[in-house]
Amino acid sequence: MLAVIKKELADHFGSTRFLIIMSLIFMVSFLLTHLAGRAIGDVLTEGGSELLEGRTFLLLFTAPAAFFSLSVFLCLFGPLVSLVLGFDSINRERNQGTLSKILSQPIHRDEVILGKYLAGLITIAIMLASLFLLITGFGLLGVGVVPSADELVRLALFGLLSVVYMGFWLGLAILLSICFRSVATSAMAAAALWIFIVFFLPILIQAGASAIAPFNDPQRPQAEELVSFTRAHKILTLASPAGLFTESSSMLLDPTHRGSDEALQIALMSRLDRYLLSRFQGGISIGQSLIIVMPDLLILACFSLLAFILSYVLFIKQEIRSV
């Protein structure tokens, strides 16, 4: 299996399309961090530092300075990296006749898909690690925010979460490359699934939650109604990888667990308001965040596992001939 991993890694880092999508991700990330950094810098010079204390650095990831924050960007567009890495991993080899060759060597079929999966995961991890390191460096030098130990741990956990999330997409991509013999078809299917899961599913979940727990008068929702709506929404979100990722990432990156756009609003409040707010605003510790996030993380991992098991079952049953 090591041989497969080695080969795939070399392929990924040498492949033009991976380098293109990676540079796109890097470029947009830098733009977003740059904008977030400027906004933070403004707040800091206005003397809002005590309010941002303990989370200045992470704001680089969560402040929606432009269209969206970096974490939301990763949620929406990170999957594309996984899909690009995996959508043709099996069917390309099948079509070029190398699959039957590999499988006539002493290697199990599951080693082939596992090797490809792990190589993709390593590639993703390397990409995210270098991205986060560069952003940290930018935060230090460009904005002058020094991450606290607490923030670094949270960032590492967020990195892990991102790898698990993108691992799910990788599993999905490999599954598609097993289902469809044609590379073009699996590319189309990947794009369709991406749009569905990332953009439509949240809308469906919203609609589903309203159907389960409707409001009598949407203009003036009752407290109980709000609670049951939120509960229904939370349960439905368990079926959405993107939703799980969003919830977990805000839990990890936002120690106070408030909407990150609020952080900037708070900075604009009067001093007294800020004082009052900060008195009652106990942050959630890393341990607590982790406990809250753990189930979501496990469910995300289960999604990846499911994709992998499906791939395995399908692949084992397939007949491999050359061409």
């Binding site: 006749g97 039957s100 002493p106």
Partner: peptide
């Protein structure tokens, strides 16, 4: 498989 060499009908390679 470790003892058999198989030349497939239309053997593929990594171009």
């Amino acid at each position: 498989k470790s003892q058999v060499g198989y030349l497939a009908e239309n053997m593929g390679f990594y171009g």
